[in-house]
């Protein structure tokens, strides 16, 4: 008996090394792949840094730095304005999409389908060159100032475009609010207006927060196409700098600008989300 227990204790209870196959090898295939990939990135970034260092030119810098900053501000201004205006415009469209009246429903559906189904570039060209073709008509109704100017056309087409996307986001979020919330409000005798602004919208906006952030980022990236109709945003200034100097660093600086901008926005949105959903979390009391 004692022999047996000591045998059991020896073979089963004593700690043994892990079987061969479970032990981590010092250099597995996975590790080698990972380090090789990281090395490729390191070489890539290093060569960009070296390229920027070698082609550093104080004249170039002093000439283009203010232009880049100006272009950057133009991009931000364009995106912020069109997202805000598009947000306002998206309200009636989202309501139309949820409306029981067939005509409104169809119209909103058509609007959304058109703007989500065609490239932003095509919409921009249609508004700028296409509508610009009817110059006399616009002059007759005193609207030519709008269609003459590439900046206002960019703003208009971005507003129309983002309104379609934002309407879908808003609709999805509103549909996501449980029906009981509306029924509860009704049974309390709240008017429809109050129900919408005090009960449905606050809950819907929390759901919509993340998609709105994504839409913002997509607009910043999408705004680069306005450089094609000669609006000098960040991309427009970059293209101008490149066409004047044939110096590739123009594009690298633009990439750095865009990446920083998007990353800041992403972090900012995370903070906003943390703040606005703090009542939904259990951990921090």
């Amino acid at each position: 008996m004692t022999i047996q227990t000591s045998y059991v204790a020896k073979t089963l209870l004593e700690s043994r090394p892990r079987p061969e196959s479970m032990r981590e090898k010092l250099l597995s295939g996975r590790k080698i792949t990972g380090y090789v990939l990281l090395a490729i990135w390191a070489v890539f970034f290093l060569s960009i840094a070296v390229f920027l260092y070698v082609s550093y030119d104080p004249d170039y810098m002093s000439r283009y730095r203010p232009k880049y900053l100006y272009g950057f501000l133009t991009t931000i201004e364009l995106v912020a304005m069109s997202v805000a205006l598009g947000g306002i415009l998206s309200l009636p469209i989202a309501f139309g999409r949820m409306s029981k009246i067939k005509l409104f429903n169809r119209m909103a559906f058509g609007y959304i389908y058109f703007f989500r189904g065609t490239p932003l570039l095509a919409q921009l060209f249609l508004l700028y060159y296409g509508f610009g073709q009817f110059r006399h008509f616009w002059q007759d109704i005193n609207m030519w100032w709008l269609f003459r100017d590439s900046w206002s056309i960019a703003l208009l087409s971005f507003t129309l475009n983002t309104a379609a996307y934002q309407a879908e986001i808003l609709r999805g979020a509103i549909m996501n609010v449980p029906k009981g919330q509306i029924e509860g409000a009704q049974s309390l005798g709240l008017p429809k207006f109050v129900t919408f602004f005090k009960i449905i919208l606050p809950q819907a906006l929390i759901v919509a927060l993340r998609p709105y952030g994504n839409e913002f980022i997509l607009m910043i990236k999408g705004s680069a196409v306005v450089s094609i109709i000669s609006v000098y945003d960040l991309m427009g200034e970059t293209r101008r700098a490149f066409s004047q100097t044939y110096d590739f660093q123009a594009y690298i600086y633009a990439a750095i600008f865009y990446l920083i901008c998007v990353e800041i926005l992403r972090r900012l949105w995370d903070l906003i989300e943390q703040r606005l959903t703090r009542h939904l979390r259990r951990d921090n009391g």
């Binding site: 590790k31 990281l38 910043i220 990236k221 991309m235 594009y251 990353e263």
Partner: peptide
């Protein structure tokens, strides 16, 4: 493997952050 993770994440951060047009030009 954290090194593979990092390399893959870097790729997605860069190409989701750059405008498509700029990626094309680059």
């Amino acid at each position: 493997e954290p090194s593979i993770q990092r390399a893959a994440k870097l790729f997605t951060i860069i190409f989701r952050g750059l405008p498509e047009l700029l990626t094309l030009f680059i």
